[in-house]
Amino acid sequence: MKHIISIRDLDRPFIDDLINHANHIASQHFNANSLSDKILALLFFEPSTRTRMSFEAAMARLGGTSISVGSIEASSIAKGETLADTIRVVSGYADAIVLRHPKEGAARLASEFASVPVINAGDGAGQHPSQTLLDLYTIQQSLPLDGIDVGMIGDLRYGRTAHSLAYALSLYRCRIHVISPKGLELPSALIGELRDRGTEVIEHEFVEDIIRELDVLYVTRIQRERFPDSASYFDVSSSYKITTELLENVRSHLIVLHPLPRVDEIEPAVDALPYARYFDQSKNGVPVRMAMLQEVLK
């Protein structure tokens, strides 16, 4: 039984296969009834409308059925049932479980109590492997993954998508450039780990210093609540904003990604430039999740 819990559990052949599979699906090479006898349980303990819709769409495209809890408040979960018990019960209703939970490690726990495959759709500040897989998938649509220069900008401390992507890129010998405000840097333990794995991690103070040497720029949101007052937030966020001016004279194949939703990290005028790929990235969630569902349900 295959679970997809953390990008750390996946090796390069698995990821490469999954990306190839998603490529086939995206070019309409799939059986629209392949999961017609399967039921997917969506257990969302915190709201995440897009991730949920994306999994539901993926399941529907393969002919499968999705079931979910109406509202957490009205269920046994609100009555204090442990996650372990919920998972054991739901395992009896469905062929696979997609779990979103506020606690880190919740999906790992679920995989230990489930009798069906579990896919982690985000656990707290922890892992969100389907996001990372669709990030990698989006990059490889334009560029070979091996040995490229990837810049990551924004909140790299609390931004879990940046952590898992950095980890995954270390499988492809990419060079990682990190640009973040003071206090929101990539955690030093993670930088140490990436370097131990042979990945070059270079810290930059200003994005202008490196933007012309990048193949990919991965933008993450800087959250207002990380700052003591609005003034210091606006001060920092405006100096990390991606503008058309900043993108002058960059590499012609540069792609700009963002896990969305964005607030004002990327100026709307950038959307019209050929570098902007964040809407493709979001659309790619469906074929990637279709490939994941077929993988765990085969």
């Binding site: 939970h101 606690k103 880190e104 500040a125």
Partner: peptide
């Protein structure tokens, strides 16, 4: 925020690495 600190029927599990202890649930 680690699930091992919530009310669940599991014990903590750490992997012993050369430079420290790695939580197998939350990666701390």
């Amino acid at each position: 925020g680690c699930i091992t600190n919530a009310h669940e029927p599991i014990s903590s599990r750490f992997e012993v690495l050369p430079h420290g202890l790695h939580c197998m649930y939350c990666d701390w």
